[in-house]
Computed example of a mutant assay.
Amino acid sequence: MEEEEGVTSSNQPDTRISSPFLWRGDSYPPILDSETPDHLERIRSLGIPYIFDIHTHFFPETVMKLIWRWFDNVNWAIGYRLPEKERVERLHHNGIERFTTLNYAHKIGMASSLNDWTYANFSNWKGAIPFGTFYPEEGVLTYVKKAVETYGFCGFKLHCEVSKLNLNRPELADTFEYLQKKQIPILIHTGTAPLPGEFTGIQFFQPFLETYPNLKVIVAHMGAHEISAYASLLATYPNLGLDTTMVFVDFLATGKAEDVDAAVSYLETYQDQIYFGSDFPNIPYNLNHPITRLLDLPMSDLAKQKILYQNAENLFFK
């Protein structure tokens, strides 16, 4: 694989050293893919035909570049700063044959156009599971229904920190009730990692879940920095799930090492409600890293099969 613009090489300093987010240990995992990622043979030996990544991002190019600029300002190296077509190729190169098209709005009038853009483009991304988004604004239920009933979207993404979104806003009640009735999943960044927001945290999420107890919800990053609080809800709410995005890796943006280590036991206990996520392409290491770290964790082969593949298959195709 050739090196991409903006990533480290042997004659470039590794900007990750200056990141305000901590790393585990004294060395950093490589950013570039290897020619043959070593996890491919391992997943085949477990009977996993391919990996289903429930947390991958697709934005219009102008928006994506603005997002990357924010990451650059905190020395968060983007491992896959590539044209869209090449990014999809890298997913397949790593055995990720199904993946979501997550994006989100941060202002009025943006969500519907993002949904239109996703619909117009997702068929170009082999293996893409189309996701929409929405925002508390006039007409929200109308364009959400269009995304489901006309566009055939399989889920939605919300980001409480970036969107400054309170899930309990009354303007969204009809939309959440509609999605609950239709059993359309929502993947929500509601935790306080890597940075807290005005409406992030379990104190906002739990009342929301109590209001819509049958809504299919997947909490991004396992709810970090409050993983135990979110995990404590899993037994009570069978439609609730957590994704592993950026949790069990050497980059500690989602919590201290001891907090991450303490969360390992949840993977076995709640193996039917945990989904693999990567945060591709906005990760400061290659895709092999989160997959290998997950495969190395002390849990059963069955749990690994469910988390890396089967749970997401069941969520969308059962």
Rank of each mutant, 00 (worst) to 15 (best):
S19Q: 06
R87T: 07
N286V: 10
K164D: 14
Q183V: 02
S10R: 08
T56A: 10
G139R: 01
N314M: 03
E210H: 13
S278P: 00
A303K: 01
L294F: 11
K306F: 06
N214A: 14
D250E: 15
T118E: 00
P281Y: 13
M246Y: 10
M222K: 06
Y178A: 09
G6C: 02
T56D: 01
N239L: 03
A303N: 01
P290M: 09
E35L: 13
G127W: 14
P30W: 06
S123K: 13
A263M: 12
Y212I: 13
N311Y: 01
V219S: 09
L167A: 06
Y151P: 11
F131C: 05
Y275S: 09
N115V: 06
G155L: 05
V260W: 07
L315I: 07
R169F: 09
I108H: 03
A220D: 00
F276V: 02
G241W: 04
P13V: 03
T36S: 08
M222C: 14
S10Y: 05
E198R: 14
L40T: 01
K181E: 14
L114F: 07
F156N: 01
D53L: 00
W76D: 03
P284M: 06
R90D: 06
L158Y: 02
I274V: 12
M299E: 04
Q180I: 13
D72R: 05
A147V: 13
Y212S: 05
G25A: 11
K107D: 03
N121M: 01
M246H: 06
L287Y: 06
F199C: 06
H221E: 04
S9R: 01
F52A: 09
I186S: 01
H39N: 14
K126R: 15
G6P: 05
K164S: 13
A263D: 08
R98E: 12
K126C: 08
L187C: 06
Y212N: 04
L308I: 06
K146R: 13
N73R: 15
G241P: 02
T245M: 12
N124G: 02
C160S: 12
F199I: 00
F205D: 05
G155E: 01
E313N: 12
F59H: 08
K85Y: 09
W125P: 04
G6A: 01
V7A: 00
D33A: 15
F276A: 09
L302V: 10
S123G: 03
T190Q: 10
Y275G: 10
F208L: 13
A262C: 07
L167D: 08
G127Q: 12
E161N: 10
P207G: 04
Q206F: 13
L172W: 10
N311M: 03
F99W: 02
H221Q: 07
G197R: 04
P136M: 07
R81I: 06
V63K: 03
Y309M: 09
Y275K: 09
L114D: 02
S163R: 08
A147C: 10
L46T: 12
H92W: 15
N103I: 05
I54F: 10
N239Q: 13
L234D: 06
K216T: 11
N282S: 13
L91S: 08
D38Q: 09
N103R: 01
P37Q: 07
Y80R: 02
H221A: 05
T15N: 05
G109V: 07
L267H: 03
D261W: 02
K157Q: 02
C160P: 09
D261V: 11
L294R: 04
H225Y: 15
P194I: 06
Y285V: 12
I48V: 15
P281A: 07
C154M: 14
A105Q: 08
N214H: 15
